[in-house]
Amino acid sequence: MTDTTFRGDDRGVSTTISYVLNLTLAAILVSGLLFAAGSVVENERESAIREELDVIGQRIAISIHQANRTVATTPDGAATTLRVQVDAPTRVAGSGYTVSVDTSGTEPVLHLTTEDPEVTVTVPLSIEDGISAGSVTGGPLVVVLDGGDLEVREQ
């Protein structure tokens, strides 16, 4: 029963079955690994998007806040031009996004939304009124004063 004897011994072994079993096990292992890795990437991407949208939302909110304060301290009736630029990226973790101002609640809020994966981040604006509702594509934005109300527009 030397090695040489074993190597040449084909008894009780079907080459086909052995091959199929090997292949199947390998496939299960590989697909399991790829699936796990894929979901890790997807999770990371979603949390990266969430974090980035939150930061962008906060920065837009700061600009709106500054604009609001400037308008509030300007006497009524004075013809005023106001433009505050916000340098926001056009894509977050590879996805485009939209920025919308929602004034339906008690306090205006900003919604930042990506479609794929679907992530929505809401940032409260902490101002009472004086901003018009609307939706724009994410990217470099400006906050302008239009007809007495602030408006978020694309640059």
Binding site: T70, T74, P75, A78, A79, T80, T81, L82, R83, V84, Q85, D87
Partner: peptide, 9 residues
């Protein structure tokens, strides 16, 4: 990045 123009009294 900013523009403010108004009339002051």
């Amino acid at each position: 990045t900013f523009l403010y123009e108004s009339t002051v009294r």
